[in-house]
């Protein structure tokens, strides 16, 4: 069984981002970048499935700038056997990423497509679902437990109402949630070995995907500053205030 895992390079989870004063975006120059933490969980799951003997080959893929090869190296250190880099220097929105990934799926024919439920930069939470839609294959989003048996997967999903379990036919797309697993530490020998594993380069053009379209980003702003608080006299007043803010 072959697993394809898509990984995204994002501003590190611990960085407190700064909005550029001219509103043109978020400052990323000189900022620490890492693999999207949810994608790390997807990588970890793939590696565990390989260790269990369920998966025989793991291919990591990313869509993004030349710098993203570092994220692929991290995926290779996790345990991916090889990687595919769809090089695109411009902004990649989820629909374009999904089309590129679908094209990669067309070449690789994975049985499992794993990725994070969302990237922590744009927080869009779309790519996995879009890939599944365009492939006309099942999707299991927000996965907190994955069991593979033959050509079927049983996936427990963290939904607002609780834990939903579904059964899906493979090939399928699974987007992973926080509680699925805890990603391992990258071992140093694996970090060094990753340097020698193959990374194949391709482009959106090669894959027949148009980069254009999507949303136009008009401006980026900091969230509204904390407004001056109010002193309330009674619990009722407090509850009314919280209800007014949509918090109760």
């Amino acid at each position: 069984m072959k697993a394809l895992v898509s990984v995204k390079r994002v501003v590190d989870y611990n960085v407190r981002i700064q909005v550029k004063p001219d509103g043109s975006g978020v400052a990323t120059d000189g900022v620490k970048m890492s693999m999207n933490p949810f994608d790390e969980i997807a990588m970890e799951e793939a590696v565990r499935l390989k260790e269990k003997g369920v998966v025989s080959e793991i291919v990591a893929v990313t869509v993004g700038s030349a710098k993203c090869v570092e994220t692929l190296r991290t995926a290779l250190a996790f345990g991916a056997d090889r990687a595919i880099h769809v090089v695109e220097e411009g902004e990649v929105q989820p629909l374009v990423a999904a089309k590129a990934l679908v094209a990669v799926c067309g070449k690789e024919n994975p049985d499992l497509f794993l990725l994070g439920k969302q990237a922590i930069d744009d927080d869009a939470n779309q790519t996995g679902q879009m890939v599944a839609a365009l492939l006309d294959r099942p999707q299991a989003t927000f996965a907190s437990k994955v069991e593979i048996a033959g050509t079927k997967a049983t996936v427990t999903r963290e939904v607002d109402a609780g834990l939903q379990t579904i059964e899906i036919d493979l090939p399928a797309v699974i987007t992973v949630d926080l509680r699925l697993n805890e990603p391992r530490y990258l071992k140093l020998p694996d970090i060094m070995k990753a340097k020698r594993k193959p990374v194949e380069n391709t482009t959106l053009g090669d894959l027949g995907v148009q980069a254009a379209g999507g949303l136009k980003i008009v401006k980026t702003a900091s969230p509204a500053a904390r407004s001056k608080g109010v002193m309330v006299k009674t619990v009722d007043e407090l509850i009314a205030g919280l209800k007014n803010k949509g918090l109760l």
């Binding site: 190296r73 991290t74 250190a77 530490y185 990258l186 140093l188 970090i191």
Partner: peptide
């Protein structure tokens, strides 16, 4: 390099 950074990260 990326490898230095990864070793530091681990």
């Amino acid at each position: 390099t990326h490898e230095h950074e990864q070793i530091a990260e681990t």
